[in-house]
Amino acid sequence: MKTERIALSTGVTLNVATAGPKDAPPVYLLHGFPESHRTWRGVMPMLEKDFRLVMPDQRGFAGSDKPHDLDDYRVDKLIADLLALADHQGHDKFALVGHDWGGAVAWAAALRGGPHIERLAICNSPHPLVYQKSIIDDEAQRAASQYIRRFRETGMEDRIREMGLDTFFEKSFSPHVDLAAIPDEERATYLEDWSGDGALEGMLAWYRMSPILVPAMDEDDVAYPEWMMSGVPTIRIPTAVVWGMDDPALLPCQLDGLEELVDDLSVTRIERAGHFGIWSHPVPFGKALHAFLSG
């Protein structure tokens, strides 16, 4: 795996990891919170022989630029980074894989119907329409999503620093994975990424700029937001959803109704894997992704 910082036409410089033959079919892999390109460390060995893997640290994360203006984290700018990176790499068409917030960017890019994405794979990241509806109507999912309200609070980054990054590490991952299974060097990499200037602010900006409405538990008669009422386009490209079924943040209800929103859909359920199954259970995720990306 090779990493380099690449200045994009969108005005940011991203730290980008690449692997696999340069002439192989390109696959762009987008990580989520609170991670980096290393999200894909477990599945990369299963994909790199047959695909050209491009794995950026998205803006606000790890080794990439961290703009200070919240407006710089609008979804259209996040998609623009992806397309600018593909243009820089000389890839007019590519497959797209996303996990968590990376999946949110991937869903949004596919919903815009551009000609660049040939295949879409999603790992534990909800379709925006399904997610928004469930947060309002499903009590269990609303409860599981209350952390978003806390991450949006003013001064949350300062409170994280006060509690200590070690404590934040444990709070972030202990509900999802066995902490003892995370090597010390991986823990050290996370702590180093989070301690950089503006790192916490950049990561939290993704929550603060998301259009998803998260009502408090005691709010009644919550109206659907306007964007939801206007509907979203049907996704026409082949799409695979690979889901860790023990995800406590994104419940299995996120799989309900997807077949009505995606024309060509396959769903693979990974039992006993949680939100970070992409690296805690890399073999079933890697096999599912390879099978789908191979067509």
Rank of each mutant, 00 (worst) to 15 (best):
M1A: 14
I6E: 01
G11E: 06
V12L: 09
A17I: 04
G20C: 10
D23G: 03
P25L: 07
V27P: 06
H31M: 02
G32T: 01
F33H: 10
S36K: 04
S36M: 07
S36F: 09
R41W: 12
R41V: 12
R52Q: 13
L53F: 09
M55Y: 05
D57Q: 09
G60V: 08
K66C: 01
R74D: 13
V75D: 03
V75I: 15
I79W: 06
L82G: 08
L83D: 14
D87G: 06
H88E: 15
Q89L: 15
G90P: 10
D92R: 12
V97L: 11
G98Q: 02
H99G: 07
D100F: 08
G102S: 08
G103I: 04
A104E: 03
A110F: 04
I117T: 03
E118P: 00
I122S: 01
S125W: 01
Y131H: 09
Q132D: 01
S134Y: 00
S134D: 09
I136N: 02
D138I: 04
E139T: 12
E139V: 13
R142T: 03
A143M: 12
Y147K: 08
R150Y: 14
G155A: 12
I160K: 00
E162Q: 15
M163S: 14
F173G: 01
A188T: 04
G202M: 05
D218M: 08
E219D: 14
E219Q: 13
V222Y: 10
A223S: 13
A223R: 11
P225Y: 10
M228K: 01
M229L: 15
I237G: 01
T239W: 10
T239A: 08
A240R: 09
P248F: 05
P252S: 05
C253Y: 00
G257D: 10
G257W: 01
L258C: 10
E259K: 13
D264T: 05
D264Q: 06
T268Y: 08
H275K: 04
F276C: 01
P282Y: 05
P284I: 08
K287Y: 00
F292K: 05
G295D: 12
